[in-house]
Amino acid sequence: MSDHTGMVEKRGVGLWLTHLGLIIGVLFIFFPIWLAFVASTVTQPEIVRPPMPLLPGDQFFENYGRALTSGINAPVALMLFNSLVMAMGIALGKIAISLLSAFAIVYFRFPLRKTFFWLIFLTLMLPVEVRIVPTYEVIANFGMLNSYQGLILPLVASATATFLFRQFFMTVPDELAEAARVDGAKPMRFFVDILLPMSRTNIAALFVILFIYGWNQYLWPLLITTDPEMNTIVMGIKQMFPSGDDTADWPVIMATSILAMVPPVLVVVGMQRLFVRGLVESEK
């Protein structure tokens, strides 16, 4: 009996310690974000004068309003919209294309099927940064600089997602496809009516990951958007830094940073349930 309570006590202390550790860790990681938030609610002179403010000021609406409507080079609202278009385009495009290519690879026998699969797989080794110069050349020749197509298209092909869906499709019993065939479903009908709904949770999980991937693109938009109107928010923050002797408008820059964080957080929180389910289980 005493043994038992001793164990509970020990576990209790351990629990407190782990929680304490976790809380310290969270605070540590959260601190810079807090500083950014504080900086986005005070005035410029307050920021540059030491000591650094640690509590929010009263300029919240003023700073955020200024950022959203005028920004520095372009209104942040516009940059947010650009980022949204790009992230959605990349996430949905990648999902659509990889679903279709995985469907082709798993369910159809065509010549060089294996070769195509390995070709797709090979592109995993060629991230955007590696092929960025030739890609730029291609996009420039197509006249897609400073356009949404230019932002989205080069990033849409996805080996990872194709691979993921392939793995999932291979776990779907063959008999399901055969039952559909006996029911008279043509291949695309089977894809839409049966495979897609069954991949729901996988799609949701992938959407979250790919949305954040698209949202956080930095190098590519930096390269192909010269027009401030086409800036995305993540690269736009960098563009807000002054060149030469100008002083930086820190409150607006910080407000922009905070705003840049909001949509990914919303997507994660909003899709958390589906996301977690998609990662841990597949409905069969």
């Binding site: 008999e175 055969e178 709904p197 069954m198 069969k284």
Partner: peptide, 14 residues
């Protein structure tokens, strides 16, 4: 004009 019943039933899970 046939119908088939499979060993593991092959019902559409969703």
């Amino acid at each position: 004009d046939i119908a088939m019943v499979f060993q593991n039933y092959a019902l559409y899970p969703h």
